[in-house]
């Protein structure tokens, strides 16, 4: 991947970087949504959402739908973090890194 700036026009650079940023956020949101749907399906096939309310240290009264929603939100949030992390780490800096002398 190039470490050169995209263009020497700063305005253009900023526009493009913004675009790339929002595009990445969109991808991360969509990918984590998709995976959270699959994860919820597998999880709730094995566990009754009613148990979720009993797991906490204080009493929570959850209806099944609230349990499903909570589980899905949880999966989405954590998958989002995982995907976001991957996205951030995958994206190399676009500007030139510090000049280094080659090791001799």
């Amino acid at each position: 991947m190039s470490t050169e700036p995209i263009s020497h026009n700063r305005d253009f650079n900023e526009r493009q970087l913004k675009r790339i940023f929002w595009r990445r956020i969109g991808i991360v949101l969509w990918v984590s949504f998709f995976c959270a749907a699959v994860e919820s399906m597998v999880f709730f096939a094995l566990f009754d959402p009613a148990y979720l309310g009993q797991l906490s240290s204080f009493a929570v009264d959850l209806s099944p739908w609230q349990g499903y929603a909570l589980g899905f939100a949880f999966f989405w949030a954590f998958t989002f973090l995982a995907a976001l992390f991957a996205g951030v780490v995958l994206a190399l800096p676009r500007t030139r890194l510090a000049k280094r002398n080659p090791h001799t």
Binding site: I6, S7, F12, Q16, R19
Partner: peptide, 11 residues
């Protein structure tokens, strides 16, 4: 600008 042409075609 040539850089820009490339970027525009990417997106």
């Amino acid at each position: 600008s040539p850089d820009e042409t490339i970027e525009l075609s990417l997106y």
